[in-house]
Simulated assay, not measured.
Amino acid sequence: MPTIVCVAGARPNYMKIKPVLDALEARGARTALVHTGQHYDESMNEVFFRDLGLRPPDHHLGTGSGTHAEQTARVMTAFEPLVDTLAPDAVVVVGDVNSTLACALVAAKAGRVVAHVEAGLRSRDWSMPEEINRVVTDRVSDLLFAPSPDAVANLRAEGYRDDQIHLAGNVMIDTLYTNLDRALASDALARHGLTAGGYGLVTLHRPANVDTPEMLAALLEALGQIAAGTPLILPVHPRTATRLESAGVPAGLRLIPPAGYLDFIALQASARLVLTDSGGVQEETTALGVPCLTLRDNTERPITVDEGTNQVVGRDPARIVAAAAAVLRDPPARRRPALWDGRAGERIAEVLLGRLRTPDAPRPTDLVALLAQRGR
């Protein structure tokens, strides 16, 4: 059986890699779990491994934080000798963080099959570092596992071959369904003095929202107005905590410590409303049927708007407050996108192992070759 390296580096990766890792091992593949160390503190790391039942990493690169260039470079220089030593048949990367891009580049240059889970998502916002990571990772990958039809359409429009593109479904939802009963049995609500349906949940972490004092103040103004009628809780992301200290927290918005995976799912599932700038939360609330307002000007997950419970409301306080009032008054109906059924990891494993049994398949689309095919 082939040897497959599965890479995780930051909190969103853990929920995405677990279903793929489990499905590969169930089919007899030899796997190595590599943790790059992009997230490394307890609240963003070990607690998620425990909650998910994710085994300890076989290799920990310990790269830590830094600028985008520093972090990406450290992951690459640490991952390259490991790839040389392990000589895997394939490397699986997930999501859109710096570790995803770094390990995909190393594996592609080493001639390994690269599989990108969550391929094809596009916000078309080049101010987001994640957008650059997504596009470049897709370009060097052999197999592109898309979570939704819009992602497939993006990849086809960009010229990828049909044999590269696979509509697999959403691995985040695999993990959600696997752990939902355990999450609902959590005492998270009681611990924070909450009642189901009696509060709203907020997450803020994107630099565009929290690094500019004026923007953070505007968002806090909107949250304060909403909290006057519906209490809000905000698990404080480490990078947000220091910003909030100087910005001032409005009455009705309560800060709580960062939540582990099970606790956070419990808080989402029982919330009356979620306000977020997170991509994963848009997906989880859609699966849970909880109204979600995305505090951004765009989303790389439009299926959560078209078929889910999400609205992209931007960052204008008046618009946010009006949208919150509307959904609190008349919550949207729950709709679950196709293939968000808890089996995405299995589909990915089947395709990847099938590809490794036919190693003479073409390499990723080369831009020069693509233009030649189109007669340009």
Rank of each mutant, 00 (worst) to 15 (best):
V327H: 10
T294P: 00
A222S: 05
G198Q: 08
P331S: 09
R335C: 08
A185P: 11
S65R: 06
L167T: 13
T3R: 15
Y199T: 07
A322T: 11
Y14D: 09
F48A: 00
I132H: 15
I226T: 01
A259E: 13
D187F: 03
D84K: 13
L216M: 06
L267S: 05
G53I: 06
P337K: 08
I303W: 06
V368T: 14
G375N: 15
R139K: 15
R329P: 04
R239F: 02
Q38A: 05
T175N: 12
V7T: 04
K109V: 06
L293C: 06
G314C: 02
A26G: 07
V152Q: 02
L353V: 04
Y40M: 12
R347V: 00
M172H: 00
L155E: 12
L267C: 08
R30G: 00
G62C: 10
C6Q: 02
A151N: 01
L219F: 02
D174C: 05
T77G: 04
V274D: 02
E350Y: 06
A324D: 05
T85W: 05
I165R: 04
G279I: 01
A151R: 00
D142V: 08
R301I: 05
R343A: 15
L234H: 03
D51M: 04
D330C: 05
L101K: 07
L267T: 03
L295V: 10
G64Y: 07
H59T: 10
I4E: 02
L255R: 11
F264N: 11
M44Q: 09
R124E: 12
F145Y: 12
G252R: 12
A10T: 09
R329G: 14
V321Q: 10
L105S: 00
A190L: 12
G37V: 00
S148N: 14
G66A: 09
H35F: 04
L267M: 13
R296F: 02
V83P: 01
G375Q: 15
R315D: 10
Q38T: 01
V236S: 01
G252Q: 12
A251V: 14
H59A: 15
A208P: 00
E118Q: 13
F49H: 10
N133G: 04
P2S: 11
S65C: 09
A78I: 00
L293H: 05
Q282V: 01
E42T: 07
P207A: 15
N310M: 11
P2I: 04
P238N: 12
H166I: 02
V236I: 03
E25L: 03
R336Y: 09
G53A: 09
A208W: 03
E42C: 01
L232H: 01
E46L: 15
V97R: 04
T309D: 10
V136I: 13
E158G: 03
E46T: 15
A241E: 14
L356V: 06
P147R: 02
L339H: 08
N298R: 15
L223E: 03
R122Y: 09
R124G: 11
V47M: 11
T77H: 11
T36F: 01
L33S: 09
M128K: 03
R301A: 04
N209V: 08
D84S: 14
L328D: 07
R50Y: 13
E221Y: 06
P147L: 01
D263Y: 07
G95M: 06
